[in-house]
């Protein structure tokens, strides 16, 4: 029989290791955060939100065109992705007992695991090649492909949480199933669904890889959906790997803005999710 002192010692050693591991996890993450805040705030100025990048060698400039481009492409991809994701989820909850529904669920899970650069390649072959040019539209489609499986699965989960008694109550009033589904089930689950949508938007707002060969990026203002368009993450990428100190500064400022947007969306989603669970 092992002595109790040895066992206690082991217990303390193991606890210390776990604590140490946690610290080792938090330190680099804290460092990333620290640098983004420090470098970001020292480089951020009003110019960042109003100007487009200056040519190589000149200091100053901003990423206003990237902010606009990201907003346009995110909106467009939401317009494509949300109907597919949400109505697909409706199918899974209202009619989803069979094999087809399980196949759809499985494909959504598989799609969610596809590296985002692959969705970029697919959008490239589907849109860039036939349209003979990089375009914001292709970028939005690539982002939508990422968004769809996320929205589908979170919406399905939220719809499943709506008590079945509400569906029965509505049907017993002689309301057709389609109205029941839209006006009772979806309406009741709205907060939860919005939570999932916000998280999905946060996810695609930071995506860079799928835009590399779809939207491509643009040094100038661009508003046409059929032309290359700037995006914030793309600009952070190209400025970070460029050999100019000034561009690095802009990249840090961009990173700060992106992180703030991301955290706002995430925290907003969390609060929304909490109030959905309470009601």
């Amino acid at each position: 029989m092992r002595s109790i002192t040895l066992r206690n010692w082991q217990n303390h050693a193991a606890t210390a290791m776990m604590l140490l591991g946690t610290v080792a996890v938090l330190v680099p993450l804290a460092l990333v955060f620290f640098h983004i805040l420090r470098m970001g705030f020292s480089s951020l100025s009003l110019d960042f939100f109003t100007n487009i990048p200056k040519p190589t060698g000149e200091s100053g400039g901003g990423m206003a065109n990237g902010l606009l481009g990201s907003a346009i492409m995110i909106t467009l991809s939401a317009c494509i992705g949300l109907p597919i994701g949400i109505l697909g989820a409706v199918y899974l909850t209202e009619f989803g007992g069979g094999k087809l529904a399980n196949t759809i669920r499985f494909s959504a899970d598989v799609l969610a695991g596809v590296p985002s650069i692959i969705t970029g390649m697919v959008a490239y072959t589907l849109l860039v090649v036939p349209m003979k040019g990089f375009s914001a539209l292709a970028g939005a489609v690539a982002l939508a492909l990422i968004m769809i499986p996320i929205v589908l699965r979170t919406t399905e989960e939220q719809l499943k949480m709506v008590p079945g008694t509400l569906r029965e109550a509505s049907l017993a009033l002689g309301v057709p199933l389609w109205r029941t589904s839209l006006q009772v089930m979806l309406k009741t689950a709205t907060k939860g669904i919005v939570t999932g949508v916000l998280l999905a938007i946060a996810r695609i707002a930071g995506e860079t890889a799928p835009l590399l060969f779809t939207a491509l990026g643009n040094q100038f203002w661009s508003r046409k959906l059929t032309e290359p368009m700037a995006a914030l993450p793309l600009q952070i990428f190209s400025f970070a790997i460029a050999p100019y100190e000034d561009w690095h500064k802009l990249a840090w400022a961009g990173a700060l803005v992106l992180v703030v947007v991301m955290f706002t969306l995430n925290i907003g989603a969390r609060l929304m999710g909490r109030s959905a669970r309470q009601s």
Binding site: P163, S170, L173, G174, V184
Partner: peptide
């Protein structure tokens, strides 16, 4: 179901 209404075990307002 419009002609034959139903009230359930647990109250289930929307």
């Amino acid at each position: 179901r419009r002609k034959i209404g139903m009230v359930f075990q647990k109250p289930n307002p929307f």
